[in-house]
Amino acid sequence: MSVLLDVALAVLGLSLALAFARVVLGPTAADRAMGLELAGVNLLAIMGTWSLRSGHTEFMDAALVLAAISFVGTVAIANYLGKGRPVDDDRG
């Protein structure tokens, strides 16, 4: 049962790494916002699978909260990206 889950976890780990890379490299702030959202989703997925893999279902709640919270984060970043004073941005 667990072999497939482990593979899935490895794949998710890789995609999370890619999302991290996106955030770090992303030329514009918008890229980084998207990267963060993506990283959030990946983290969500990992937590979900891991909770079933390890039997602790509490992580599912954490995933639930993460889904809601990362939305707030992204909206905040995007919202302030436009308005507010010109946030100094090393636009690529």
């Binding site: 980084r32 983290l43 390890s54 954490a62 970043i77 946030v87 100094d88």
Partner: peptide
């Protein structure tokens, strides 16, 4: 050099810490 980038990346570092806690149950 950009403040916003620093904040967002900080968020990412935080996420990896979360993963550590997940790893340690």
């Amino acid at each position: 050099r950009s403040g916003l980038a620093a904040i967002i990346t900080l968020g990412v570092v935080g996420y990896s810490v979360v993963l550590l806690w997940v790893h340690w149950q």
